[in-house]
Amino acid sequence: MELAFLLIIFMVFFVGSDFVMNVVIPRMKGNFGERRVAAKLRRLRKRDYIVLNNILIPSGQGSSQIDHIVICSSGVFVIETKHYKGWIHGHQKSENWSQTIFKHHTRFKNPIRQNWTHIFALRKIHPNFQKLKYYPIVVFSGRARLKNVTSELPVLYLWQLVRYIRTENHQNRLSPSQMLWIAETIKSTKFKKKKGSKKP
């Protein structure tokens, strides 16, 4: 932790504060949040669930980076992770959501919309993927408080995630062999990174 702090100080003074504050630090926070979610998902039994983390697949002219995918007998859970603090406000149909820390307000892309772009990209991988049941989830892994979030789709705290997945996994749509085929098909989908491609 001390080494990471010293690295940030070095980058602020020698690389450029704008780049560090707007690109490096948010990316570090995102990676930390994704690691926390991945650790939580390891509590799912391997014989019942297949977990894929940090998946990059083609999407139109670019790519779609999916934080986490959980495959089970009921279908495919697609998880968008946000590692934020403060109060979170947003509506499922809004273009942007907002984060409030005291009197400071920051806007960020609607994570529900982001997650739907991931699902659309998954559906295009293989014709059979069109028939799958998808469960989009947004999970906040930091110290955020969902003060004014309106959504018919699940927007959860990290501690709620595993319990929600287990609760929703109650239908036998997929056999173990089908689950494995889906996971291997996703992993084998090659993406050739193009200049300027980034997470939507």
Score class of each variant (00 low, 15 high):
F32D: 11
F13I: 13
S59F: 12
V51P: 00
M21F: 08
I66L: 12
R35N: 07
Q178W: 02
L56H: 10
V24G: 02
S98V: 05
G90C: 02
R173F: 15
L6T: 03
Y157E: 04
C72N: 09
E95S: 13
Y84S: 06
K29M: 06
L3D: 10
W87D: 10
E34I: 08
Y164S: 03
L122V: 11
S151F: 00
I182V: 10
F102S: 14
L146G: 01
G90P: 02
K198C: 14
K190Q: 07
K194V: 05
V15D: 15
T167I: 12
K82F: 08
A121E: 02
L6K: 15
I79F: 06
R43E: 12
I165A: 00
G196Y: 08
K187T: 07
F102H: 13
V24A: 08
R47W: 03
K131A: 14
G86F: 05
I186Y: 02
L132M: 14
R47S: 06
K192G: 07
V155K: 00
I182R: 01
F140E: 04
K133M: 13
Y134G: 13
V78W: 04
F77K: 12
H91D: 03
H118E: 04
V76M: 11
Q171K: 06
S177W: 06
Y49W: 01
K93M: 02
Q160K: 05
I165P: 00
A4R: 15
D18V: 07
V78R: 03
F120M: 11
K46N: 06
M28R: 13
I71E: 03
I112W: 00
L52K: 07
K192S: 06
L161H: 01
G60E: 10
V162E: 08
R27S: 15
L174D: 13
M1A: 08
K131I: 01
R173P: 05
Q114S: 09
P176N: 03
F13A: 11
S63F: 14
W181I: 05
A4Q: 15
S98L: 10
M179P: 04
W116K: 09
L161R: 00
K46G: 05
M179L: 09
H104Q: 10
I182D: 01
T81N: 10
V138T: 07
I9P: 00
V149F: 00
S74R: 13
M21T: 03
L3T: 09
F120D: 14
M11Y: 12
L161E: 01
P200A: 13
L132E: 12
I69Q: 09
I137Y: 09
F108S: 10
I66H: 09
I9C: 13
R42F: 02
